[in-house]
């Protein structure tokens, strides 16, 4: 089964990379860009039936650092 984990910096955590990309978009002439935040997409190919609690543990133990990041799991059964 395919599961996607989206890892994002928590609101309020400075994202200098997102800020630089924001400035670059403005530099390219795109108007109306209010904010840019950059996260990480992790695709997991898991044995069928892997439960969401196990995937949450993977996220909390390694895939995300919950001090600074939040995560969402997509495609879990």
């Amino acid at each position: 089964m395919q599961v996607r984990v989206l890892v994002r910096l928590k609101p309020g955590v400075l994202d200098p990379q997102g800020r630089a990309v924001h400035h670059a978009l403005e530099g390219l002439g795109f108007a109306g860009v209010e904010d840019v935040r950059i996260g990480r997409l992790i695709e997991l190919d898991l044995a069928e039936g892997t439960d969401e609690a196990t995937i949450r543990q993977m996220c909390e133990k390694l895939l995300a650092n919950t001090v600074i990041e939040s995560f969402t799991i997509e495609g879990a059964q």
């Binding site: 200098p16 990379q17 650092n65 001090v67 600074i68």
Partner: peptide, 11 residues
């Protein structure tokens, strides 16, 4: 130790 180390603010 508590906390985390993020990318430098100046990139």
């Amino acid at each position: 130790l508590p906390g985390a180390l993020l990318r430098n603010a100046g990139q």
